[in-house]
Every structure is written in C-alpha cells, then in structure tokens.
Amino acid sequence: MTPSDASAGRWSDLDRPPLSAASLRRALVTEGSLWTSLEVVESTGSTNGDLAARAAELPEGAVLVAEEQTAGRGRLDRSWVAPARSGLFFSVLLKPGAAVPAEQWGWLPLLAGVATATGLSRGAGVDMALKWPNDLLVTVDGEERKAGGILAERTADGIVLGIGLNVTLTEDELPVPQAGSLALAKAAVTDRDPVLRAVLRSLEEWYGRWRDAGGDPAASGLQETYATGCATLGRHVRAELPGGRELTGTAEAVDAEGRLVVRTAEGERSAVGAADVIHLRGH
C-alpha cells in the first residue's frame, strides 16, 4: 500500500482528483467523534482485509479508504472492481463491546445501508433504496440498478464494515449492465470528498443512536427506517439459500433480528437470515 498523496501521477485524471486525506481528517477526526483515524491509500487488495488484519491493535473508529481496490469483495465472495478514483471504497472498525449484546451485531450491515442512503440523500442529492440485506440501489432511466454494497466481517472484538459505492462510473465502465452509479442517477454532487464526509457523519449518527439503545433496532428507529427504505419489501422475490435451496414468495417484513420474512404462495412465512435475494419481475 502507498499513501495516495505520494503518488506522482495522482493528477493524471483531472476529472477524478484524489481524495484529500488531510481535509477529511480535519473534518471527521475531531474531539469526541467516533472516528479516531482516517487513512487514504492509493491502492490495496481489500480495505476490509487490511483493517481486519489490524483490528486488534486499532481503537474503534479507524477508517481506511482506498482510491482503488484490486481484490475488492462483495457478498458471497463476488469481486468488486472499478477504475481508480471512480468510487468510494472504504472500511470502518466498530467495537460495540458490552454496550450491545452480540446477537444484535447482525444489524450493523443494515445500519450501514440506512446510514449510507440517508447520508447520500443529504450529501449527494440522490435517492437511494436498499435491497435486502445490503445492496445500495439507484434509479437510472427508470430502472433500479446496484450502485454499491456493504460487507461485514467479524474480528476478535469487533466488526469491520466495508462500503463500496460507484460514484462517477460511466455506462461504458460498468462491470455489468445492471450496475449504476451516482453520476448515472444524476446526483447533484459527485465530488467524493463531501460525499464521503456525509456518509461517515450519517454512519456515526446512526451507530450512536443504535448503541445508545443497546442495539435495540426498534427503539433506535433503525428497523422502521430500514423497512421504509427497503425496495425488497412488498416485492415478489426468489431467495437462494445456502445448500442450493430456494424460496419464492412475497417479501413481507424485516423482523427484529434483521431477517427477511417471506410469505410463500401457500401462505407459509419463513424468516431468511442468509440468502441471495432476487427481485422478480411481473409480480
């Protein structure tokens, strides 16, 4: 890893200037803030992997941002690749400790989705929906497209949340046709510095509210806010479950454990905790 400020060619693409680590630190790493450090690197395999490897020696609130990820991962070990400085690829270290029972930590990826969506509404002027459990959707020409995602990894005493967000990707640069970006969704702001500040401030706010409520998703308002912004609810879906099983039905709710409740055509309700969910058309 090399610090982004040390790269001789960092101004090679004037349409995609590098992040300013110094200004981000001045804005975010302040007295009483959740964020205790913020590092920007030019390129790395995975910010989640790097931060998880150092989690034991770092305090809560460490933030690691990469201008480019060469081995970024999404859920189910899918790769996440994008041109350098075209998006935001970062991870944060959280250590809820005794303040939140471990069984509630499963809400953290969903919390990150809510925080990212609300932060982007304020900071980028773009509407974003959530696809259960942690895909970030934007609307491009009337069509829902994935513009980002969240990956959570447990460490010995905490959790690393990785957030990947396509910011300025053009149609020609999309990894798959179903992908999107803030620019394609006509966001009012695509300057990555203020966008990252808005997302991290929103994440700090939501995390504080959830932690102060002892991780209670209802008392913190997290469960209701997630459901309001979740594009999966009310849709006909196919949940591809571990072991090759499938469940098809209507996504009805997100329960107190963050699981997706699906009602089948026979009227049976099942709570899905880990699955790849596909929104089905024509229903």
Rank of each mutant, 00 (worst) to 15 (best):
A82R: 02
P17N: 12
E60C: 13
L28M: 11
E68G: 04
E39H: 07
T30N: 09
T47F: 04
S20G: 12
W35R: 10
A52T: 05
L51E: 03
V41Q: 02
R73T: 05
G49A: 10
S12L: 15
S79I: 05
A8I: 15
T70L: 05
N48K: 01
W80N: 01
E60R: 10
L58D: 12
G9P: 05
R75V: 02
L28C: 11
E31Y: 08
E31C: 08
L28H: 06
L76I: 13
G74S: 14
A66K: 02
L19N: 00
E57R: 14
A22R: 14
A22M: 06
S43N: 07
T47Y: 03
R78Y: 06
L28P: 05
V63L: 09
E42S: 07
E68V: 05
E67F: 00
S46Q: 04
L76N: 13
G32Y: 08
L38S: 04
L14E: 15
G45K: 00
V29W: 09
A52H: 02
S33V: 11
D13M: 12
V41C: 03
T47M: 07
E42G: 03
L14K: 14
R54Y: 08
L28A: 08
A52P: 02
P59Q: 07
A53T: 06
D50M: 13
E57P: 09
N48I: 01
R73P: 03
V63N: 04
S33P: 09
E68F: 05
L76M: 14
A55F: 11
G9L: 11
L24Q: 01
S43V: 14
P59S: 13
A22S: 13
E31V: 11
E31Q: 14
L24S: 00
L19Q: 00
A62I: 12
R78V: 04
S12F: 10
R26S: 14
Q69D: 04
A8D: 15
G61M: 09
L34T: 10
A53Y: 05
V81R: 09
A55C: 14
E67M: 03
S12Y: 08
S79P: 00
V40F: 00
R10M: 06
G61T: 09
E68N: 09
A55T: 12
A22P: 03
V65T: 03
